[in-house]
Amino acid sequence: MSVPHIGLYYFGALSLVLVGIYGVLVKKNLLKILISLSIVETGVNLLLISVGYITGRSAPILSEGIGPKQAVDPIPQALVLTAIVIGVATTAMALSVAITLYEKYGTLNIEEIRRLRG
């Protein structure tokens, strides 16, 4: 069992995903779980962008001096561009669900909320 060798950006993105999953697994506060999910989302975006990167090439804006042969892959950037905006909207929706739960139960602890059910 050898340690696989991955690049720096892959390492950063993977660490963000793992830290976020740790928060989701261990923490009991709803808002803290949502913050961890947001960190996971940032990590996944970083992973997608770094998969599309090509060493020594510049941004995919074809102005003077930058032809199709000198640009990085534009497709992951186009995907992530929309994903970030969708991410903040869905995070806001989840937070409003959490606010509604707090107004009903008076707590944000997920175990307490489960016990009060029914």
């Binding site: 340690v3 696989p4 060798h5 991955i6 690049g7 720096l8 950006y9 892959y10 993977l14 995903v17 770094s50 998969v51 990167y53 090509i54 060493t55």
Partner: peptide, 11 residues
């Protein structure tokens, strides 16, 4: 995950 990513070299 790292095992999978090691097959996708960076850059």
């Amino acid at each position: 995950l790292a095992q999978g990513l090691a097959g996708v070299p960076f850059g």
